[in-house]
Amino acid sequence: MSAATTDGPASADATGVRSVQRAMEILSLLTEDRPVVTIRDITDGTGLAKTTVIRLVQTLEQTGLLWATAGGYLAGPALWRWAHLARSSWEMPPELTRAMNDLSARHRETVNLYGARDLTRICLAQQESPQALRHVVRIGDELPLWGGASAKVLLRDADDKRLRRIVQASPDGEAHLSTLRAWIAEAAERGYAVSHGEREAGLSAVAVPIEGRSGGVVAALTLSGPTVRFGDEQVDVYARDLVDVARQLSERGFDHPLGA
């Protein structure tokens, strides 16, 4: 029997996928804090050889995804078109934006909307607390699902296989599974979830589910901030308000891709 070779369509497909992954790694180096990257930044950040980086950067520049300047490479105009498309597709319904603004104004804490994707939760929208000491994540940030109030409501309908995959990334690994199950069950029974320092010391949150047209959980609406401001009485106030707002949003129909 002849030895298997790496030539042919399968090998080409693997090479293509690897190139796409590497291109995404390069683009992901661009952030608000670092809007321009050099070839040296890219080689250091990706670990790729300089010749590979140059070839990929040239392709990204040709497609408009990167733009060359005297100081390095910044996001290209093609990304602006994609960003506009993404914004029009994923922009939050006006009633949700108003509700988040009102919640933050009433309670002076940060309000976030999270959606789940596989093993992580993504911040989809935010209204920052007006207070100097506050909890803030960036829109688009991905956080783990093994802890935190929003995770407990987002995982209400998750099967055991997915939960087992999620806890592998937790500090306690498989041993965390029973705890996570208990958290999810408690949140489902109460209609909201609370967390104190589960993911980050000194940080607390209260979260409620927003349901889609099919009745499943599509997003989590949360109030979060320093634990010193989340005593039992205050948590009760936050929970009642969040539950009421989430119920109104769910009853109106969550007109958004998440709610499909």
Rank of each mutant, 00 (worst) to 15 (best):
90 W>S: 03
137 V>Q: 11
147 G>R: 05
88 S>Q: 10
122 I>C: 10
95 E>I: 01
106 R>I: 06
163 L>G: 03
134 R>P: 08
122 I>L: 12
96 L>C: 08
103 L>F: 00
127 Q>R: 11
147 G>E: 09
128 E>Q: 15
115 G>F: 02
130 P>K: 11
159 D>F: 02
167 V>S: 06
113 L>W: 00
130 P>N: 11
145 L>I: 10
169 A>H: 13
120 T>E: 10
95 E>S: 08
157 D>Q: 14
161 K>V: 15
139 I>P: 06
144 P>V: 09
145 L>V: 07
123 C>H: 04
96 L>E: 01
108 R>E: 15
128 E>T: 15
99 A>K: 07
138 R>G: 14
132 A>L: 15
90 W>E: 06
93 P>F: 01
130 P>Q: 11
122 I>Y: 04
94 P>C: 07
153 V>Q: 06
138 R>F: 08
122 I>H: 09
112 N>E: 11
101 N>I: 08
135 H>W: 12
147 G>Y: 02
89 S>L: 14
132 A>E: 15
134 R>S: 14
96 L>Q: 01
156 R>K: 10
144 P>K: 06
110 T>K: 02
139 I>M: 08
112 N>S: 08
149 A>C: 04
137 V>C: 09
139 I>A: 10
157 D>I: 04
137 V>S: 11
124 L>R: 12
154 L>Y: 05
168 Q>S: 10
114 Y>K: 03
113 L>A: 03
130 P>V: 10
137 V>T: 13
158 A>E: 12
95 E>C: 04
121 R>N: 02
106 R>E: 13
87 R>P: 01
161 K>I: 13
134 R>I: 10
139 I>H: 01
101 N>P: 01
124 L>T: 03
149 A>N: 08
113 L>K: 03
115 G>H: 08
107 H>R: 01
100 M>V: 00
166 I>C: 01
134 R>L: 10
161 K>L: 13
91 E>K: 11
155 L>M: 06
167 V>R: 04
133 L>M: 12
152 K>C: 07
97 T>I: 00
87 R>K: 09
169 A>Q: 14
111 V>C: 14
122 I>G: 02
162 R>Q: 13
157 D>P: 02
103 L>W: 01
91 E>M: 12
143 L>R: 09
152 K>G: 02
134 R>F: 09
155 L>N: 07
127 Q>C: 10
88 S>K: 09
119 L>H: 06
131 Q>V: 13
95 E>P: 03
132 A>G: 09
152 K>S: 13
144 P>F: 05
